[in-house]
Simulated assay, not measured.
Amino acid sequence: MNNRNTTIKNLAVPVVSVVAGLLLGAVIMLISGYSPVEGYRALLQGAFGRTYNVGEVVRLATPLILTGLGFSIANTAGFFNIGLAGQALCGWIASIAVAMSFPDLPRFLLVPLCVIAGAAAGALWAGIAGFLRAQFGTSEVIVTIMLNYTILHISNYLVRNVFTDKNDATPRISENASLRLSFLTDISGGSRLNAGIFLALIMIIFVWVLMRKTTTGFELRSVGLNPFASEYAGMSAKKNIVLAMLISGALAGLGGVVEGLGTFENLFILDSAPAIGFDGMAVSLLGGGNPIGILLSALLFGVLKVGGLKMPSVGIPNEIVEIVVASIIFFVGISFAIRFIMDKAVMKRVKKGEA
């Protein structure tokens, strides 16, 4: 019975968070003089009104799935990897660099080579924070934040001085390196939906198997629960710290690969680290770190962000969508309060039953 109640609560918390976030968004619309009904109707129309829009929802969700999975690995092992954005950018840079270096390689060789390079680059960048945490106890939060800014400036330097001659964007990659597939473009009404979605689905299965069915996953979960007890049981906490960050960074790097080879097909000057890193954290938290939950959360974020672009058509600024997303994250962040209220309600029902 306890396991059943725990499962129900784990499912209820994200649902309550989403509903509460949407309600808060509606209240803000009312206060601001807008109609919540019209606003959310426009949002749904913007997300599902055309095949193109649906394709863009899935396209936007794809890198969020990968960065969300990356965050869940680190979080399960007891670390807060806030450097997903920088690691995704590393994967983006590496995949574009390989694509530009070998444009004439056959597609069946070049695409896997770019994907592997991107994953390796993300893993390496995250591994810096993992190594420093394992060897010196350095805060991975501070290190990864600093690395986000470091790779952002490195990226902009490479675009202007290495990949191009003072230009703000690289040329588009060759078709041999692109993740876009004609049949996906056709069935999605010309959207930027690409083969990255297949990569994301494979990684969902990989993460589930890794964390639930392997010794490595058991050790990562054990270190996250109690590193001291894990050491006493013969597990190497230092090894698992570095391993968790490497896997986390590799998954985030794949998110950058999808953006580079699938969505934009080039690299350009950025004002800030890619938003997929920070949104991926929110996706993972909303999904409770569960791969299927992350998939559903990423699709929800896709619906909100793509659909929100339609809201100005009824006079509502699409910043309202950002408020809704922030509200959902807020309610996820205070999930302990939601659980407390649910426990109180259950106890009250039990007492009434006894009476």
Rank of each mutant, 00 (worst) to 15 (best):
R4Q: 11
T7A: 02
K9P: 02
L11I: 10
V15R: 12
S17P: 08
V19G: 11
L22S: 01
L24Y: 07
L30D: 05
S35D: 14
G39D: 11
F48K: 03
G55D: 15
V57W: 15
F71K: 03
F71R: 03
F79V: 14
I82W: 11
G86F: 07
G91K: 04
S101N: 01
D104V: 09
L105E: 04
P112S: 01
A119H: 01
L124P: 09
G127N: 14
V141T: 06
I151S: 14
N156Q: 15
L158W: 10
V159Q: 15
R160G: 13
N161D: 15
N161I: 02
R172L: 13
S182Y: 08
L184M: 10
L184I: 07
D186A: 15
L193Q: 03
L193G: 03
N194M: 05
M203N: 09
V207W: 12
V207T: 15
V207G: 09
W208S: 01
V209Y: 11
V209I: 14
T216Q: 06
G217Q: 04
E219N: 02
L225K: 07
Y232K: 11
I241F: 13
L243P: 05
M245K: 10
G253Y: 02
G256L: 14
E259W: 08
T263K: 13
F264H: 08
F264T: 08
G277T: 05
G280A: 02
S284W: 07
G288V: 15
N290F: 09
P291K: 05
L296P: 03
V306C: 01
P312E: 03
P312K: 06
P317Y: 00
V321K: 03
S327L: 09
G333I: 11
I338F: 00
D343A: 10
V346D: 15
M347T: 14
R349F: 05
E354W: 13
